[in-house]
């Protein structure tokens, strides 16, 4: 589903965020990326989302080289991906409901269909009762969960998450991971950047460790397939 083929990412200043990365995530696989901050976790996710372009090498999603996509195709590509951002990326002048509905609005869902899906997504993250509130009325953890609901609402075939449990207490973190695992079980590929080692070890998933832009460990447990 996702394939990195000898990918390097060098920024304008000469800083190399990723160097010669190769790995593959298959369909229905859930993998973690760990590493210290600055190790290249976010850069890796940005390459998949086509927010950045690889300096060398190629990133394939569903067999398509992301570097070769046109602007329009990039938009189409992003609709297949549900992304959870570290800084949430919510719209503060829209209600929780409207924030979660945004991907559906973009895909042109009928409002009545969208409503059903948004409610289901908010229910999954336990925020159904807060759909009318605005993001600024919510705690950091709740905002994070709104972001997760928005990422899954369109039932994407890939979910990318950058520190999705960063603001959550252990119970909520476990809930979020359960939601992710449900999606994995229906064939969604997930790539989660996190340094919550205790949570990761509980889940027994494949874990890719990055250090200074290089893969130093690719631990595969029975969690894949």
């Amino acid at each position: 589903m996702i394939k990195f083929d000898n990918v390097s990412k060098r920024y304008a200043g000469g800083h190399e965020a990723l160097s010669a990365i190769s790995f593959e995530i298959s369909k229905g696989e859930m993998a973690f990326i760990t590493g210290r901050s600055g190790a290249g976790k976010s850069s890796l996710l940005k390459l998949i989302l086509a927010m950045e372009r690889a300096s060398t090498g190629a990133v394939f999603v569903d067999g398509v080289n992301i570097n070769r996509l046109s602007r329009r195709q990039i938009a189409q590509h992003r609709r297949k991906i549900g992304a959870v951002f570290q800084d949430h990326q919510l719209l503060f002048d829209r209600s929780v409901f409207d924030n979660v509905a945004l991907p559906l609005e973009i895909c042109g869902y009928r409002p009545q269909d969208a409503r059903r899906r948004v409610r289901a997504a908010l229910d999954k993250v336990g925020l159904l009762r807060k759909e009318r509130l605005y993001p600024e009325m919510l705690s950091g953890g709740e905002q994070q969960r709104v972001g997760i609901a928005r990422a899954v609402v369109n039932r994407p075939s890939i979910i990318l998450a950058d520190e999705p449990t960063g603001n959550l207490d252990p119970d909520l973190s476990t809930d979020v991971m359960n939601v992710f695992q449900q999606f994995r079980d229906v064939g969604v590929s997930l790539l989660v950047a996190s340094h919550d080692i205790s949570l990761i070890s509980k889940l027994n998933c494949r874990t890719i460790t990055l250090e200074a832009g290089k893969i130093t460990e690719d631990y595969s447990a029975g969690g894949g397939s």
Binding site: H77, R79, I106, C107
Partner: peptide, 10 residues
């Protein structure tokens, strides 16, 4: 920015 991140076209 957000609209584009979740797949909105120009």
């Amino acid at each position: 920015r957000v609209v584009k991140l979740v797949g909105g076209t120009d």
